[in-house]
Design a protein around this nucleic acid. Structure first.
Lengths: 223, 223
DNA sequence: TAGCTAACGTACTAGTTCGTACATTAGTGA
DNA sequence: TCACTAATGTACGAACTAGTACGTTAGCTA
C-alpha cells in the first residue's frame, strides 16, 4: 500500500482531529475496498468501518462514492507517474535502455496489483471517472517521453528497424505486464500456471525484454 | 452476440412455452448485462425485463444470480473453444503457422468484446466462478495443443530459438490481444489513442505477428 | 480565554435489489 | 379427452445501501 499514515512522529502527539490524516486514511481503505470488490461491489459502510472515522466524513470530504473512486484513481495514477519520473536510462545505449524500461515496468506492475485492479474496474465502466477527472485527463505519461527518446535514438542509429511509435511500444510492454497481474486468476484456473509464481519471475521478466528487443531489432524485409 | 434465438422456422409455429428457448434468451441477455455492468452492477430485474419471460424463470432455471453468471461464463468459454477447434494450421510452416495463430487470436478477441469483459470481471472476483464450475475446471484449450505442435516443429528444425513452452507463448499472444480490448477505454482516455481504431487495425495485427515471430526466431547468445 | 468554525459522530430514511410464496396454465401422454 | 406436470406469472418481503439531517466538540485565533 501507499499508506500515507504517519505513525505520530515521537514528540508530536497524535491530534484527535487531523483533516489530512483522515482523508488519507479514507483513501487508503477505499483503495483496498474498491480493488477488492469492484466499484459496485465496494461498500461505503465497509470503507467507513475500517477507518477510524465515520461514513459521514467520506461524504464530507469526497462528496460521494463516485467522487471517492475518482480520487482513489487519481492518487493511484499519481503514484505511477512519480515512479516513472524516477526512471533514468539516458546513459544507456538504446537496447539496454529499452530492456531497463521494460524491467521497471514489469516490476512496477507486479508491486501494485491494487492499481491494476482499479484500472481493470475503470475499464469495465468505460473510463468514465477518468473522463470526469480534471487531473487525469491532461497529464501525459513520463514513461512515454522516455520511450520516445530511446526510440528516436535507436532508429537514427539504425539499431531499431521496427515501424512503431512510442505509444505503440508502451502498449506492447504494458499489455504483457498488465495481463500477467490482471488475468492471473482466470489464467491460473484454466491453465494451471500461476503467472506470478516467484520461481518463474525471472523467466517472465527476461521473456518480456527479449520479446521487445527482438521485435525492435529484427531484420525486416524492405517494404 | 451468440444468439441462439431461432426465429420460429417457417411452418413450425412458435410455442408459448419452450424451456430451451427461454433459457437461451435469459443467457443472451444476462451475458450483455453482466458484460455491461460487472457482476455486482448487473441487475437481475434488468435481465428479466429484457427477456420475454420473468425474473421467476431465472431462479427456476439457474438458481440465482451467482449460478447465472457461472453459466454465462461457461457458455462464453465454450464459444471460444469451438472457434479454436476450427483452427487448422498443420499444413503451414512453423513461422506462417504461428503468425496465422496470432492473427486468429487477434481477430477473435476483437470480435468478442463481451467475452473479454466477462473474463475481466471474473478476474476481479478471483476466478471464483470458474473454480466453482465443473465444466470450466478441467477442459484444456485446443489452442494450446496447436501451439505445442507448432512450437515443437519449429524448435526441432532449429527455426525457433526461444526458450518458451506453449503456455508461455499463449500468455504472450493473449496478453497483447486481450489488453487491446480490455484496456481500450483507459488507454484511450490517457494517451488519446483508440487501440480499436479500424484504420490502425492492420498495423496492430501485423505488429503482433512481427513481435511473436521476432521473439521466437531471434539470434540468441548461447547461455 | 472566549468564541468561532472546521472537523466530527449518531441516527435515520428512502429507495433499491435479490429472492420467494403462491397461484396459474400450456402441452403432453395415457 | 382428461389428468398431470413442467413451465410460467404476480405480488410481495426482508435486507441492504447510498446518502443526509441534526447535533457536538477540538483546537486555533484574536
Amino acid at each position: 500500500m501507499t499508506s500515507v499514515e504517519e505513525p505520530a512522529r515521537p514528540g508530536e502527539r497524535e491530534r484527535i482531529r487531523d483533516a489530512a490524516r483522515t482523508q488519507a486514511e479514507i483513501l487508503d481503505v477505499a483503495t483496498q475496498e474498491f480493488a477488492r470488490a469492484g466499484y459496485d461491489g465496494a461498500r461505503v459502510d465497509e470503507i467507513a468501518a475500517r477507518t477510524r472515522t465515520t461514513k459521514r466524513m467520506i461524504y464530507y470530504y469526497f462528496g460521494g462514492k463516485e467522487q471517492l473512486f475518482t480520487t482513489v484513481l487519481e492518487r493511484a495514477y499519481g503514484v505511477i507517474r512519480e515512479a516513472e519520473q524516477q526512471l533514468d536510462v539516458d546513459h544507456l545505449d538504446p537496447v539496454a535502455a529499452i530492456r531497463r524500461l521494460a524491467e521497471v515496468t514489469f516490476d512496477h506492475h507486479e508491486q501494485h496489483p491494487d492499481f491494476i485492479r482499479l484500472v481493470s474496474i475503470e475499464n469495465i465502466h468505460g473510463a468514465q471517472h477518468i473522463a470526469a477527472s480534471e487531473k487525469l485527463g491532461k497529464i501525459g505519461s513520463p514513461a512515454l517521453d522516455v520511450i520516445r527518446r530511446i526510440l528516436t535514438s535507436g532508429q537514427e542509429s539504425g539499431l531499431f528497424t521496427a515501424d512503431v511509435d512510442a505509444v505503440d511500444l508502451h502498449a506492447m510492454i504494458s499489455s504483457y505486464c498488465f495481463f500477467r497481474v490482471s488475468n492471473r486468476h482466470t489464467f491460473g484456473a484454466l491453465f494451471g500456471r500461476d503467472l506470478l509464481d516467484p520461481a518463474q519471475r525471472a523467466h517472465y521478466r527476461a521473456m518480456l525484454g527479449d520479446m521487445v528487443i527482438a521485435y525492435l531489432t529484427a531484420e525486416r524485409t524492405a517494404d
